[in-house]
Design a protein around this nucleic acid. Structure first.
Lengths: 205, 205
DNA sequence: GTCTATAATTCGATAGAC
DNA sequence: GTCTATCGAATTATAGAC
């Protein structure tokens, strides 16, 4: 098991990684450290403005090591942005609870895994990231919506589209742009009000 | 009055500008052409990935002319991203129509003025653009919400926050990321369903 | 495994001729 | 007003010594 100590000098984060249990090859530890630093830099600056050198500095390692382990910047990004929405099966819930439960799940995933912020901040200018987001929401979300009710695919696609505008809007304002009126909303307020909207989009009409 | 002819060679747009009426100084025409090209490049690529050289090429002009007219890249961006939401006074409308009317106004503004897409695509990685968006939504939107009903400011701020997540989410998915399920929604569908949500956020409880 | 040196680009910005 | 030439900085990526 690996553990991290993180500290920052001159407004720049650094990571020290150490083992807590099973021994692991040094190369794996190094790779984990690079990946952790990469996630942070891509998350903060987006694909284009994150640099191999900056990532290497945060991981306390030589920049050439990053290339050695990940080949190039694209592959490093792909590794750092690996993500799964892990949408739960909501079909058993009472209808009134589906929306709030889904919003809570989204908030949790967004806060526990940097990958979505990475993808969102990069997708706006980086084609690979945009394609990943399109794929995630085209497959996982539409499938979940279609499963919820037995409707023809075009209608499920409309519901999924409306749902995505609201959920990505929350993520953009709260976790990427950090707009004060949205950051100041509590989790409970978001779950209640946005949950009601999601319910309308998924089950309304 | 100025008019534009636009064509593209090698997947890159170019602009020819000519007068239709009143004569104008050549320097003004040049400046207009640069600004038009700049809006397009910032809108497509964001601040960091748009280049002075690319903008100059689109405007059929020497790159040094851009610097001459606008000083530096920051000032050129500020000129290209100049924007006003022009929120209408909705307090006279029947309550049921406020949400749909507001959504329609947002869609119109977004489609007739590139500046909002410019700001949104740049705000994610460029601090100046993020600050502009924060300012626009902190002032114009919150003021409109507060005017709609006579409520204490913290409550108006919550309503404005929820509203912004939905409206920026629509803009992000439809005009920036161009997610298929959202692009495929018709204007009428957006006005109807998102309008209902907006009504809930602005007037609910 | 690690690091120095450097190649090859690209960009914003400036100096200065005409 | 216009353009050539160029500076200085930053980046990804590679070659090769130890």
């Amino acid at each position: 098991m690996l553990a991290f100590i993180r500290f920052h000098v001159n407004a720049c984060w650094h990571t020290i990684i150490f083992m807590t249990n099973e021994p692991k090859r040094k190369s794996d530890i190094t790779k984990e450290g690079i990946l952790q630093a990469a996630k942070e830099h891509f998350s903060l600056h987006g694909y284009g403005n994150a640099t191999i050198r900056g990532i290497a500095a945060s991981a306390n390692i030589d920049p050439t090591m990053v290339m050695r382990y990940f080949g190039n910047k694209e592959k490093l990004f792909a590794a750092a942005a690996e993500f799964d929405l892990r949408l739960p099966d909501l079909s058993e819930l009472p209808k009134q609870q589906i929306g709030p439960a889904l919003v809570e799940h989204f908030l949790n995933r967004w806060e526990e895994d940097e990958a979505l912020v990475i993808l969102l901040r990069s997708a706006v200018t980086h084609k690979d990231a945009a394609d990943r987001i399109k794929q995630i929401f085209a497959t996982q979300v539409t499938a979940m919506v279609a499963k919820l009710r037995n409707e023809p695919k075009p209608l499920a696609s409309k519901r999924a589209g409306l749902l995505v505008t609201q959920m990505l809007g929350v993520a953009l304002c709260r976790y990427v742009l950090k707009l004060p009126p949205v950051v100041n909303l509590s989790r409970e307020e978001l779950i209640e009000h946005v949950g009601q909207t999601v319910n309308e989009y998924l089950l309304g009409d």
